[in-house]
């Protein structure tokens, strides 16, 4: 009752704000909260004619089916291998890049480098994959043209299982290094100049200055970014990897998100696909929680 009274009073005073919230809140109810209820599909037998609310309860049948499926381990391994490799290559490089840029004196050079490295971020995934396919093209691609010019054999980059992960990861670094560095560049701009000056007076070399002044100053930013990165270890975006797949590289490129799409939207096994998606989300959340916990223990920075 007390709550209702509070609501009544709040509403009579601020009713215009309530009206403004009406639209975004109903949008979230319809397009976010109703699909959340749809997660129950994972525990139901769902026939094609049912709406999201139909179907008979079957418990964890589809989770068992997925955990016992022959491709379960390969999906897990592929997803983890690609994201872990991406983290290993894509996480430290923007930090190093930002620190290096921070050492350069010429404002013009710094600005130019930032502009150039930042640009690829705006390329759409479709076009990015198009560029990868063109640059690495067997017959007409830039890399093979150069190899040919230097007297080497042409290489079929997209037709070999062994190259796929490297291409996926390093094209990702190519596209996002400049963008990821911005947050560190912003953090470096906020480092106390007095601290830097003091270290110079003490005769610290540039390397020592980076190690003892700049790096510790941006440590909280690095930790927060790391928590996010670890939390995303099992969530591999669908778009790019799906566009890069072909029949040859499928054994190393089939990951959980592409599997969910194929089972769910192509083969219409709605319940099974929802169960796989939910399993993946649960693993992700666990990883995020663990990363957050350890970061709070070690470095004092955390999301919650």
């Amino acid at each position: 009752m007390a709550f209702l009274n509070f609501l009544k009073k709040d509403f009579s005073k601020r009713w215009q704000l309530y009206l403004m919230l009406l639209l975004p809140v109903s949008h979230a109810v319809i397009f976010k909260y109703i699909p959340m209820y749809g997660i129950t599909l994972a525990f139901k037998d769902f026939s094609l004619r049912d709406t999201m609310f139909g179907g008979a309860w079957v418990g964890v049948k589809y989770f068992r089916q997925f955990l016992g499926a022959p491709m379960f381990w390969s999906l897990l391994k592929n997803t983890f291998a690609i994201t872990f490799y991406s983290l290993l290559a894509g996480f430290p490089l923007p930090i190093i890049f930002a620190l290096a840029l921070n050492e350069m004196r010429s404002r013009r050079v710094v600005k130019t480098m930032q502009t150039i490295t930042y640009a690829p971020y705006f390329i759409s995934t479709v076009v990015m994959v198009g560029i990868i396919l063109q640059v690495l093209h067997m017959r007409v691609g830039m890399v093979n043209n150069l190899l040919d010019l230097l007297g080497f054999e042409r290489i079929d980059f997209m037709g070999k299982v062994g190259y796929f992960r490297h291409i996926y990861v390093w094209s990702g670094v190519w596209q996002s290094m400049g963008f990821s560095a911005v947050i560190y560049i912003a953090a470096l701009a906020g480092v106390d100049p007095g601290l830097v000056e003091a270290s110079v007076i003490d005769g610290a070399s540039r390397l020592r200055k980076i190690w003892h002044v700049f790096l510790p100053s941006i440590q909280p930013t690095i930790l927060i970014q790391l928590i996010f990165a670890i939390g995303g270890l099992m969530s591999l975006g669908f778009d790019k990897i799906w566009l890069m797949q072909n029949s040859v590289v499928l054994p190393v490129s089939e990951v959980i998100s592409t599997f969910v799409y194929k089972r769910g939207l192509e083969q219409r096994q709605y319940s099974y696909a929802t169960a796989v998606d939910l399993f993946n989300a649960a693993v992700n959340f666990a990883l995020l929680a663990v990363a957050n916990f350890s970061s709070r223990k070690i470095g004092g920075a955390s999301l919650w």
Partner: peptide, 10 residues
């Protein structure tokens, strides 16, 4: 989030 399938069905 509901994920791919529930959103599609909605």
């Amino acid at each position: 989030s509901g994920g791919m399938i529930p959103t599609y069905l909605l």
